[in-house]
Design a protein around this nucleic acid. Structure first.
Length: 552
RNA sequence: GUCCCUGUAGCUCAGCUGGACAGAGCGGCUGCCUUCUAAGCAGCGGGUCGAGGGUUCGAAUCCCUCCAGGGACUCCA
């Protein structure tokens, strides 16, 4: 990328200046190239001389002068100049910028793809909600974040696998099954009560009725324990169907659905525990089996196997990550967890150390909570109690594209209010539609061109020299950098901001530059630019998992 | 009590591993549709960047203390 190339040029210039004695010898920090906020400062800039001033015992401005004298400019750059208090600025050549339009057209849908990943195998695990109830908004956030990251990492040259971890055993599943059994009995006019720590939501009743419709009252004749365990199977399968269905509404699709129980049938659990044991991290105390995380710098130990002999969620998760790293051998694993799992992160890092893996291979994104509200009123989403608003209802009310856009527009670090009233009220002026409208506008221009049978394949892009045109091109060629940045930082929220910015620049161009006009040569050139804009806009929308409408 | 996240314009949020006058959307106020989509464009107004110290040539950004909101500290997941 041009940015890296400039950094290299600068570095070489410094070295050369040092060799010639123009600059004092000093260790060089990494040369950073940035985009100045103010366009008057050029396309790229570096504050490198400012940082070197002390070590070189020279004024930043003087250093900048020396460096710029020694620099060999890459062909894309028009000029380099020095600005106080010691910046080195670069401006791109207008004729090079216009040829970038051709590059975009040539790359087509692949424009923006980069080779950061070098085909490294990355597993992205997200959502992984207990199959004991429908998804709510908070889960939607994780789903959108994860699927978008998967899109971007794929575009960045990683081999990505998306996985959903199904917690299909353990205490919560038992609570769920008992609750379901109670509702099942109630629906068949039997006395029964949902356990206090069970699931009280109405969806359990619907589920019970559905099972009755399909399988009748056959569970009544089974012994209590058998009925519960069979209903657990049926109930979990049905909840998973609902979850899959809801995720599909947001265009979230997984490659692998991984069952927690399979870790026990497949021996991963035994092998992982054996490994920890032989490494000396497993101790027996207080009637339970513990992972001695305190010896790895944690503030306390954690239970692996309870007094009653049942393994904890933590033990399963150890077996699961053992499987991810040592059996499936992913180069990198990214887990997206809710804020309530934040305390789990250092534990899992400690586990990796114990398993002789590099903790850096595991990246955990903690996604802060979502509060759902309608104006002032906070809407409850808890699964275990009373009335809830499901993700499905939110999507149906707000629409999948606005949902995705809203979820993506905030960094995972910050908690968000999802205001249904606002989301719907804003619809008309929603940034979502603003971006999509730009795409639809483009489609409309291209339709007109087609209707008039304008062949712009031979358009001459060197005619694209006006200010709105070059501003637009400058934005278009930012796409690979945005992709890189999102892939590197694992922060997809930069995408919607870029999309919006691009749309703004396009709308402005549209207003100032008539595309299909009397001037045939200019028309052909501008149609190329418009087509390139469509490719980039559609690409960003696709990365965000949103639709790129031809008409609105 | 310990740990994690957050605190930037009336509201919702960006601010790229310290940089050149602090940005966007919404809301408010002005203008702009006989030509490719006005779900648009152009402009105005609006901020002691939670508070106080510190590091630095330079801090919204890094360090410390404090304040406020949220979350985690279960043989729950």
């Amino acid at each position: 990328m041009l940015r890296q190339e400039l950094a290299r040029c600068l570095q070489q210039a410094v070295l050369k200046a040092q060799q010639e004695g123009a600059l004092a010898a000093a260790a060089l920090p990494e040369v950073l190239i940035e985009h100045p906020q103010n366009p008057e400062h050029g396309d790229f800039a570096s504050g490198f001389p400012l940082r070197m001033a002390r070590a070189m015992r020279m004024s930043p401005l003087a250093i900048a002068e020396k460096v710029s004298q020694h620099i060999v400019l890459p062909p894309q750059v028009d000029k380099v100049w020095v600005a106080p208090p010691g910046f080195i600025n670069f401006t791109l050549r207008e004729d090079w910028l216009s040829t970038e339009v051709e590059s975009i057209l040539a790359a087509g849908e692949a424009y923006g793809n980069i080779d950061l990943g070098k085909s490294k195998r990355v597993q992205l695990e997200f959502v992984s909600v207990n199959p004991t109830g429908p998804l709510h908004v908070g889960h939607g956030r994780g789903a959108v974040l994860g699927s978008t990251l998967a899109n971007v990492l794929t575009a960045s040259g990683y081999a990505v696998e998306k996985e959903y971890y199904i917690n299909d055993m353990g205490t919560q599943i038992t609570n769920f099954a008992r609750s379901l059994y109670a509702r099942y009995q109630q629906c068949l006019s039997k006395e029964a009560a949902v356990p206090p720590d069970g699931y009280h939501g109405n969806y359990i009743i619907d589920l019970a009725n559905e099972i009755i419709q399909e399988q009748g009252d056959r569970f009544l004749s089974l012994p209590n324990g058998e009925a519960v365990s069979q209903l657990a199977e049926v109930g979990v399968a049905k909840m998973l169907q609902t979850i899959k269905h809801d995720l599909k509404l947001l265009d979230v699709v997984f490659d692998v659905w991984f069952s927690e129980r399979s870790l026990y049938r497949g021996g991963q659990y035994d092998r992982a525990m054996e490994l920890l044991q032989s490494a000396g991290y497993v101790v027996q105390k207080a009637n339970a089996t513990w992972f001695e995380s305190s010896s790895l710098g944690e503030d306390k130990d954690n239970v692996l196997v309870r007094g009653d002999g049942s393994p904890t969620y933590f033990a399963s998760d150890i077996a699961y990550h053992y499987n991810k790293f040592l059996e499936r051998k992913f180069d990198e694993v990214i887990d997206i967890w809710g804020a309530d799992h934040q305390g789990h992160v250092p534990r899992m890092k400690a586990v990796l150390k114990a398993l002789q893996c590099d903790p850096e291979q595991l990246k955990v994104i903690i996604c802060q909570l979502v509060t759902l509200r309608r104006g002032e009123e906070i809407v409850k989403v808890s699964k275990r109690s009373g009335d809830i608003i499901t993700l499905q209802e939110v999507i149906e009310e707000v629409g999948p594209d606005p949902c995705r856009f809203i979820f993506l527009s905030r960094s995972a670090d910050s908690q968000m209010d999802f205001d249904m009233e606002l989301a719907k009220k804003q619809s008309a002026d929603n940034p979502v539609y603003y971006v999509q409208y730009a795409h639809a506008r483009i489609a409309s221009i291209l339709r007109l061109a087609k209707q008039r049978e304008i062949d712009y394949s031979q358009g001459d892009v060197s005619l694209l020299t006006s200010e709105p045109e070059s501003t637009l091109i400058r934005r278009l060629i930012l796409l690979p950098e945005i992709v890189e940045r999102v892939a590197f930082s694992l922060e997809p929220h930069h995408l919607p901001y870029y999309a919006q910015d691009l749309a703004t620049v396009f709308h402005s161009f549209y207003k100032q530059c008539r595309v299909v006009s009397e001037d045939e040569a200019l028309t052909r050139a501008r149609l190329k630019l418009v087509k390139a804009s469509q490719l980039v806009l559609a690409k960003v929308l696709r990365l965000m998992g949103m639709s790129a409408p031809e008409k609105m």
